[in-house]
Computed example of a mutant assay.
Amino acid sequence: MSKHFEDARYYLGRAAEHAKAGIKEELEPLQDRVSKLVGDEPEEEPEPSRLDKLQADLKELEERAEGEAREAVTSARERIEAYRGRKDEKPSE
């Protein structure tokens, strides 16, 4: 292909990209208006309700209580093992 045709093809491609961007920019306000009229707007994320906040708080408390319970069980097991170890060390009479 001739260098002139390659250059023309390149510049036509660039022109098409610029035309597409320009059309998109010009039609964006119209698209927003139509979306509002039709009711097809993207919905904003609603703020969490009181129930959602309470559920999140309860979940956090549950997780914290679970952790504390695990620590208590681990501590109790260690004390039992230590007690059994001392009991086994005493000389039998």
Rank of each mutant, 00 (worst) to 15 (best):
Asp52Arg: 12
Glu47Thr: 10
Lys90Cys: 12
Lys53Phe: 11
Lys20Phe: 12
Thr74Cys: 01
Glu41Asp: 14
Val73Thr: 03
Glu78Gly: 02
Ala82Ser: 08
Leu12Val: 10
His4Glu: 15
Ile23Gln: 11
Ile23Tyr: 10
Lys59Pro: 00
Ala15Ser: 14
Arg77Asp: 04
Arg84Lys: 10
Glu47Ile: 04
Ala76Ser: 03
Arg64Ala: 02
Lys3Gln: 15
Ala21Tyr: 03
Ser49Tyr: 06
Glu63Trp: 00
Asp7Thr: 11
Arg33Val: 08
Pro48Trp: 08
Lys90Gly: 11
Glu62Ser: 01
Glu60Ile: 03
His4Asp: 15
Ala69Asn: 03
His18Ala: 08
Glu45Phe: 08
Glu44His: 11
Tyr10Ile: 03
Leu37Tyr: 06
Ser92Met: 14
Glu78Phe: 02
Arg64Asp: 01
Gly85Lys: 08
Arg84Leu: 13
Asp52Ala: 14
Lys87Met: 10
Leu54Arg: 09
Asp52Phe: 08
Glu17Phe: 06
Pro42Asn: 03
Tyr83Glu: 11
Glu17Ile: 01
Met1Val: 04
Asp40Ile: 07
Asp88Tyr: 06
His18Tyr: 12
Glu41Thr: 04
Lys87Gln: 13
Ser92Arg: 15
Glu6Ile: 05
Tyr11Arg: 15
Leu54Met: 14
Lys36Leu: 09
Ala69Phe: 00
Ala19Glu: 13
Leu27Tyr: 08
Gln55Asp: 14
Lys59Asn: 08
Ala65Ser: 11
Ser35Tyr: 12
Glu6Pro: 04
Asp40Gly: 10
Arg79Cys: 03
Lys24Trp: 07
Ala76Cys: 02
Ser92Ala: 14
Gly39Phe: 03
Asp32Phe: 04
Leu61Tyr: 13
Ala56Tyr: 01
Ala76Leu: 07
Asp32Met: 07
